[in-house]
Computed example of a mutant assay.
Amino acid sequence: MSWDPYDPGAEPDFGPGPDPTTVEDPTAPPGIVDPFADPTAVPDVGPDVGPDVGPGFDPGFGPGFGPGFDPGFDPGFGPDEGSDVGPSVGGVPDLPNFDPAQSDPTAVLGNPGAAMDVWQQHTGENACAIGAQGMVLEYLTGQRVSEEQLIDEAASQGWYDANGTAPADVGNLLELHGVPVQQVEGASLEQLEGVLADGGAAIVGLDADEIWAPGHDPGDDTVGDAPGIPGQGANHAVWVTGIDNSDPANPMVVLNDSGHPDGQGLEVPLDEFMGAWQDSGNFLVAAGAPREV
């Protein structure tokens, strides 16, 4: 099985651009060129109105989980800025996150609150599957292995390259570090729930465009393979940490998503999650599950 990569971040061609020998005076009436303007000067366009939003926003698949979400900007979340980006910064939506204080513990499957403690945003190119496995490894064993080491290990075994990680290789790093893994294609929601109930960790493949678009209608998944449009197929790997049924009418799937700056305990409505997961053929990697999935 392979999943098509996509690149919605290609830079559009705006043509050859303005003639550098003429620089318009921004204070002049429209259409009037200042003949004395310094052609090497940079016009003052006022204060910088766009916040620096991140080091790259790349969920990471490749031919399997691949080139990831590259909207064509450097989101720039620096070390001092964290993940609180407000309603929308630079085109990156602010997504909802699980709050243990606002949920009914008896209605939550899995342990998403504890899983949030090991969330990390991946930095490697197309490294979403690496990031998911690294978080799961720490959660299940208490062993934190750097992303750099995991990338080196995966690359040396042929499980990762610049294009990302093939679905068939997701889980190999966990097995390398002693964590039992089961891969399931065409998994059901009941199987996913079973992994969570048993204390295991579930990594799934899905369409990132759908879970990153709050209010996405699963019925819209009929647009084919257009780059960057929901419904084109799976392009991302995430760790499902829980299912919150505190509001039975609106169950939420909780994810640790290493590809999004708001991915720590990201909440996705169940129907939206199911639509996004279906795009991978309901691909599931069950890690640390004590029984057959």
Rank of each mutant, 00 (worst) to 15 (best):
P30I: 03
A237L: 11
A249P: 07
A37E: 07
D38N: 13
Q133D: 13
F36G: 01
P75S: 06
V49A: 09
E81R: 10
D19Y: 10
Q191F: 10
E272S: 11
A213T: 11
E185V: 07
T40C: 06
T106K: 09
P100R: 02
Y139G: 02
V170G: 05
P96Y: 04
P105T: 00
L174K: 15
G200I: 11
D74G: 15
T241C: 08
D221K: 01
G64F: 12
D84R: 11
P5R: 08
F283L: 15
D7H: 12
G76P: 01
T22C: 09
P79N: 11
L255A: 13
G205T: 00
D221A: 05
I151W: 05
Q264V: 05
D271Q: 14
P18E: 12
H216I: 03
D70A: 05
E11Q: 03
Q191C: 11
E175A: 12
D161K: 10
V238P: 00
F77D: 08
G113K: 01
W3G: 03
I243W: 03
V53P: 02
P96F: 04
G131W: 00
E190Q: 04
P269C: 08
N163G: 09
L270M: 15
D220C: 02
M116S: 07
S188H: 06
N245R: 14
V145P: 00
G62W: 00
D25K: 13
M1F: 12
S156P: 11
V53Y: 05
I243H: 01
G228P: 05
P55C: 08
A166I: 08
V118M: 03
T123Q: 10
Q182V: 14
G72S: 15
A213R: 10
G78L: 03
G46A: 08
